[in-house]
Design a protein around this nucleic acid. Sequence first.
DNA 1: TTGTACGCGTTATCAG
DNA 2: CTGATAACGCGTACAA
Lengths: 357, 357
Amino acid sequence: MTGWKSMAANKSRKSSDTKRVSVFDVAKAANVSVATVSRAFNLPNRVRDDVRIRVIAEAQRLGYTANPSAKALRSRKTHIVGTAIPTLDYAIFAKMINSFQDRFSQNGYMTIVLTTGFDNKNIFERVKMLVDRGAEALLLVGAIEDPALRQFLKDTHIPTITTYSYLPDEIVPSIGFDNYGASFSILSYLADLGHTNFALIAASSSGNDRQTARIAGYKDFIKARNLSGADRILVRPHEIRAGADSVRVILKEYPETTAVVCTSDVAAFGALSECRRLGLRVPEDISITGFDDSDYDAYLDPPLTTIAVPAREMGSVGADMLFAALTTEDTPHAVKLDSQLIVRKSACPPRTHKIIQ
Amino acid sequence: MTGWKSMAANKSRKSSDTKRVSVFDVAKAANVSVATVSRAFNLPNRVRDDVRIRVIAEAQRLGYTANPSAKALRSRKTHIVGTAIPTLDYAIFAKMINSFQDRFSQNGYMTIVLTTGFDNKNIFERVKMLVDRGAEALLLVGAIEDPALRQFLKDTHIPTITTYSYLPDEIVPSIGFDNYGASFSILSYLADLGHTNFALIAASSSGNDRQTARIAGYKDFIKARNLSGADRILVRPHEIRAGADSVRVILKEYPETTAVVCTSDVAAFGALSECRRLGLRVPEDISITGFDDSDYDAYLDPPLTTIAVPAREMGSVGADMLFAALTTEDTPHAVKLDSQLIVRKSACPPRTHKIIQ
DNA sequence: TTGTACGCGTTATCAG
DNA sequence: CTGATAACGCGTACAA
């Protein structure tokens, strides 16, 4: 039990009884100049083999590791990349960050994550924090809604990409999929099944272009096909409970509804569970669809029909894109990933019978 | 479309056409020395009011923000905290990191996250990465299994805490709950219901003290009460599918089993779903319990009886503990959080009938 | 209260 | 291929 705590109590010197070893120490030990030590690590082929080997050996023996701050100060490279995402509590973001971080760390970069909530109108402050902290590149989510942030990005030229939405007209490269089209494809599937009466459970679209696009896709499809339900839209936070509440409202207010479309799996899950609690059969009495393709969707009762979102891929290829940008390689301006309709069992042709309410 | 890309293509100068403004620039603009500028920000009360105001104003106007690397180099404070966790893909860790990061960022610290997988025997490398990168403090998960890491932590005295397990004898402070006891409490509940034939679905315990403790709790309880199933233990990764596969094996190999205990909710969820697929009723035919209390547990069919894990709390009070340690305040050596048995509907007294296999 | 000057640990630029 | 030395941008004795 002689951990750092006993040390910390000793106010005189905090965690540095044995002062950190620097290039200087290694230089002395290896009988070379500091410049050579630095080169031995950073430009290995510009130092004679035996010297390099000796230097590295001494460094190893002394336990030397370059001070990242000094390194960053001099080289102007922090090797830190910043990410601003709505939340880690939501599986798709966690999944994306997980693969992003995993991939980027292979390039010697560390990932700082900052959560911002779902409304992109207020992320400027957070993003500035990130770059003030030395982030060399940025990973964002969705469209850049704040004009101030947009201007900032233009001015500073800091490599940035944005994810989840395919945004060919955005000022920074994007990697994502067509949220509008995804809505279309799921509505199209339901319409082909024979549904004409829809309802939508969505999250707030304020500063959230993914929700905005999904909702727009829903509305436009319905209008285009002359179906009904274009304004049967319930907006609630991304929570299971919200899905449950919403479906109850739908059943009561719009009993003609035969298909409930959700812009997230959690909402769909809540809706599913509430229907069961109410004694309604899904999909026989009512069809329900999700969005995300969470791991558990396939194991639900009934298995959830949904849209598969390439979360992991956005993280890993997003990392590659950003790294390419960092190294001045050419980067595609926008890459469009597929979002696939996953047909399972939570939707079927509309009921022809009455449901007891 | 004049983002950073067009700039990056211009190899001559990357993202710094307008060179960063420094204390020097502000000093000049405000007609004071650099020292005063520095003081205006860091020791505000040691500079005359009107001067300070002028300096801050000029800084604002020029868009000055201190270079974090220079600051860190000089002050020996990076304001970065490192976290090494198994994965972000698993909700409880994501949840913990989310609240940790949220809390710590309020203290002006940035959080670097590095994933390590579930086996703590190999995290030393990753942890060293973190401190080499300037992490002032560390958040780990579970017992410190690697002697090299243990020694490293002792030598460097870098503030570290470990989470998820209550570990009063660990060399660093811990915040977590009694995993062993949690197993006991769920087994106890099932035994009181009348169960005598158990099976366990667990994850690998290699370098994972939480699993080790939960498995030990399971075994010990069964032996202590002279029940059966102490060695009916299936070890599979934390995946839904693994839970499904496992329960099938149990049904086939150990048909006498009436209660399946899982060390994670995902496993339990998979087991639940597989039972349904097999036409078995839960809990009438077989009882199943989970571990974690994921958000969706309450909405499952049947709602899952499980152990509630204080993930969010571990993150936020863990952040507080670490911050206290960083500021040389006294820190409790180990804080024990509650893990509560949440009784829902996935367990009941054992069947008295035969189940069709 | 303010300014001068030094050093934090590296890397980059020159000579040699 | 190697060594001396000048920055990098900031905080802080010390002196004024």
